[in-house]
């Protein structure tokens, strides 16, 4: 059973076909990259997976369960978490309150004994405060706990989004350019964090323009261009794929 399974998803906006029959799979504990030029449809795919846009065809399974017809919040309750390319933080709340809101929203729907995956060993029956503290510490945000998120630089605000998504204890996490706005050291730390999350069993689908990071942490990479998957495989094979190079740098000189 895969954490996330996307089969033949097609999305149309008016006459424009934004995604055509995209299929991909993210295993448990696997980090999968999704790359491609701007406008290739990566964010649209994320929106289709989490139910913000409605695909005209295709199925989406989270932890083996078909979520295609569900509303966004129901999919989240099946274990689907995400971050956003254009920040969607709770700007008037502090860093700690952002993460705390995530924990508390989860508490409204999580039933006792729910099988949501634990990404941190102690995470199961902690009081909200302790869980928030744990997440902030792990993301290196503890010092900023009381700072309003609206005043943070983008890179750190993205980490807050990640912390908030983790607070819902997802089984699969969709990350939309999480490392943009981070410097080299921070990006490296972030990569290590992803690997750790995956080791704890979380499936990660990573959209990222820092291809270095993608190549480094991903087991498998899908390349999207004009709404279709044009290549997939391990980092080495993708890097040497002619179609990929052409998609990135244009039609060759």
């Amino acid at each position: 059973m895969s954490a996330l399974e996307v089969r033949g998803v097609t999305v149309r906006f008016g006459g424009h076909q934004a995604l055509s029959e995209v299929s991909l799979e993210v295993g448990n504990g696997q980090i999968v990259g999704l790359i491609g030029p701007n406008g290739a449809g990566k964010t649209t795919l994320f929106n289709a997976v989490c139910g913000v846009v409605t695909p005209s065809a295709g199925t989406i399974r989270v932890m083996g369960r078909d979520v295609s017809g569900m509303a966004t919040h129901r999919r989240a309750r099946q274990g689907l978490g995400r971050t956003f390319q254009r920040l969607e933080v709770f700007a008037s709340l502090s860093v700690a309150e952002n993460v705390r809101a995530g924990v508390e929203i989860r508490n409204t729907w999580e039933r006792r004994g729910h099988t949501a995956r634990q990404f941190l060993a102690q995470g199961d029956s902690l009081p909200a405060d302790a869980e928030v503290e744990l997440i902030l510490n792990r993301l290196g945000l503890a010092e900023l706990a009381d700072v309003p998120v609206g005043s943070l630089p983008t890179g750190q605000a993205r980490l807050v989004e990640l912390g908030r998504a983790l607070a819902a204890r997802p089984s699969v996490l969709l990350l939309d350019e999480p490392a943009s706005g981070l410097d080299e050291t921070e990006t490296a730390d972030f990569g290590a964090l992803l690997v750790e999350l995956a080791a704890a069993g979380l499936g990660v689908l990573l959209v990222e323009h820092d291809v270095g990071l993608v190549m480094q942490v991903c087991e498998r990479i899908y390349v999207l261009d004009f709404g279709s998957v044009i290549a997939s495989g391990d980092p080495e094979s993708v890097r040497s794929n002619e179609a990929v190079v052409a998609a990135y740098l244009g039609a060759g000189t």
């Binding site: 030029p37 701007n38 410097d183 323009h209 990135y248 740098l249 244009g250 039609a251 000189t253």
Partner: peptide
């Protein structure tokens, strides 16, 4: 441009911007 070899074909000069 973010990615493009095509633009390099017509450009007289190119600059790379980071951070």
């Amino acid at each position: 441009e973010q990615f493009a070899r095509t633009v390099l074909g017509v450009a007289d000069l190119a600059a790379v911007m980071v951070n």
